[in-house]
Design a protein around this nucleic acid. Structure first.
Lengths: 139, 139, 139, 139
DNA sequence: GTGGTCTAGACCACG
DNA sequence: GTGGTCTAGACCACC
């Protein structure tokens, strides 16, 4: 299972919060399963090009909240999860997110092509990161 | 031009923002044209069963953003469409909206193709009318 | 950076607008720089002896206009200066402001030279710092 | 002297303001001279097909500003301009108008030259109108 | 503690 | 009747 992360460093929501939210969501949706190992603090920090402290901060809270647990000397692992989203639920959420996205951007006068190009570019970055390459994860 | 307003009071997006988005969408798609009068603050508040101040809040932002214009004592009217934001700002906003969208959907495990197909379908429903003088986005 | 706020409650310009203008002026003149924290909503409201909502109203518009940014739970901070408006929009606003100014002063019988001299004197006091990347106005 | 009024009921500037501005402009440009009588409230309201209250409102402000004066039982007459405000009062008003103007435009990133050029252009239009009269009241 | 949103109700300016 | 502003007080999310 590819562990995909996407953060926006420029956002007003703290980076560590973005990490937490994505891990939580990944667990809830079944993208990540019980027992899956999270990337190491240093690895993830390197991938996202952020401070390891930020990752550590996020991981600490995940442990505090019981989403993950630390096996000393081995790493961080996802704890028993509660529920997974059905196909319908996932579609509903995608639909909702798209509606919100369009609502915020229609008046910006971008063409569908421009938007799709930008979306593709961003997605390709995510793929690059989750493919495990170490060199090319630049922004 | 009577146009239906719909709000979801339980949504995470504030009510006043939902109103704004609907008006902007209506303007972009041509449901509302220059000179059309928006429903009065009190009327819309009554219709949506919300506080008039919430509607006023939304209307004030529409005026600030150049979407509508107030004729004192008469009401709010849709203005001639124009793009008030610089190219840079528009790109920044698109970028931000895309980041948020991705943050909320990466964990849903949809492929780029699936998302783009859905995006295309939604866009085709709202035939976008550009604000640019020559049919293109201006700055 | 402590910066004094002054409002005239009796003025025709709304209080929240006076706050906005003072912050913007402070940013333009360099009294406030990127990253500086604005006084809290409640603190400023107490200082000016006005309702916190009025301050919140002003702050919300500063955020919408990209002058400040909210860090959840921490406060409001001045953002990196940028020009969000298109050249067209900025000209439109300048034109509007000039019309209003002339409407209020033509009957005062000042010569163009007198007015320009006074304008120059005032401008020189607030050494304007451009938001443009290359020192000029951008769009 | 034909006292012609033109108002645009559809404009976003209030009708009473349009009336005030036209009288002021008329006085400044010499279209109206000291001692000229303004149309009665009821006559003007009838002519413009607007509410008499609106005209009364405008006239009241003209009197407050010293542009016109009421001779009870006779009507409203254009005052002698020069004796309206003291030098100090005129300076105070100019100062205030300039402050408001700068507050609204500093963040637009226009240079002093650009502003002064635009100001000059606008003023020259006024001069063109008032030319041919007994010269030199302004500029 | 911070800001963000919403409700309730008031007063003003304008027509 | 219209919108614009302000006050008062409430609840929320986030830190």
């Amino acid at each position: 299972m590819a562990l995909e992360f996407h953060i926006s460093p420029g956002s007003s929501t703290p980076i560590y919060r973005q990490i937490i939210d994505q891990v939580r969501k990944g667990v809830v949706t079944g993208s990540w399963s019980e027992g899956d190992q999270l990337p190491s603090v240093r690895a993830l920090a390197e991938q996202l090009v952020i401070n390891p402290n930020t990752v550590a901060h996020a991981y600490a809270e995940l442990v505090r909240n019981g989403v993950a647990e630390s096996k000393p000397g081995k790493g961080l692992f996802v704890t028993k999860r509660r529920q997974i989203f059905s196909k319908e639920e996932r579609l509903r959420r995608l639909n909702e997110a798209l509606d919100q996205f369009l609502g915020e951007t229609v008046f910006l006068d971008f063409s569908l092509d421009e938007i799709q190009a930008m979306l593709e570019r961003k997605r390709s970055k995510i793929r690059t990161i989750s493919a495990g390459k170490k060199g090319g994860a630049n922004d």
